[in-house]
Amino acid sequence: MKVLLVGEYREGQLLESCFELEAFADELKAERATLLVGSADACQKLRGKVYFADAADYLEYNPDLHKRLVLEAAARENADHIVFSHSAYGWDLAPRVAAALKAGQVSDIIAVRDGKFEVGCLNGKMRRLVAPATAKAVLTLQPGAFTLKNPGPPEPRIEKLDVEKTASPVNFLGYEPAEKKEVDLTKAAIIVGAGRGIGKQENLAVISALAEALHAEVGASRPVVDAGWLDHSRQVGSTGQVVSPKLYLACGISGATQHLTGMRKSGFIVAINKDKEAPISELADVLVIADLIPFAAALTARLKKP
């Protein structure tokens, strides 16, 4: 089996997800080549055959040109699988490649089982085992699901790749940096995370009081931030901050995949939730099944007792 890995490069840097793609290829025991639209320097960090297209020519984001580069490299390799990270880049580019090849796409893969792919569904509550119905397939991998165990030294065999540059109706204007942070959650020893289960903004006071009693920082899941109840810098997750406190107290957080990615490495995880089957329970060292607000108030009172 042959796989083409499509590496990711942003703001002049090779992204770590490239090594997750390599780990996946190793797990499949597949012969692999990597395509990187990036810099010659970044290619030096990779292993095996590398198709290199210069980001100076093709930009870091230009879906039409990147699609053509992927198709060209896949044709040269006669790749069975074309593999991306399920990041903003893969999210955007992979289906374009799948459409062009009329190939099936399996998104957000978390494991390989007997040559088939396990993916999450229903916000992580259930799993599906999926197989492509087409000869060639496009795959995207859940960030963090595959880890390169014995990388060995980088030893790329680089081949320059070019395609004709045509005009695109999509024009990449540049990056907008992250907003200034109100708080750096990565330094917090204890985080009390507030989720949709807090119900309404006024209930944040109860969560803040609990955080204060624990000398903790308040974090949040995405819906709480999207609703404008807390600042974006308090968002824990793959699109917010990735944290690893000694204690993470998840309050009313069901545990969408992108949130779990952000707090999985916490030392000790307590989840307070009404729904005992919420995906957060998979990670919880202690699961408290309770009505959040009265329980949080009771815990605060208990902690304040001398």
Binding site: K125, P132, A137, L283, V286
Partner: peptide, 22 residues
């Protein structure tokens, strides 16, 4: 026709080590 096929639908394997308080 379909380009991918779902073969199975099932709950995730539980870690099972956690303490449940109620």
């Amino acid at each position: 026709g379909p380009a991918v096929v779902t073969e199975k639908f099932y709950p995730p394997a539980r870690k099972g080590a956690g303490v449940v308080l109620e």
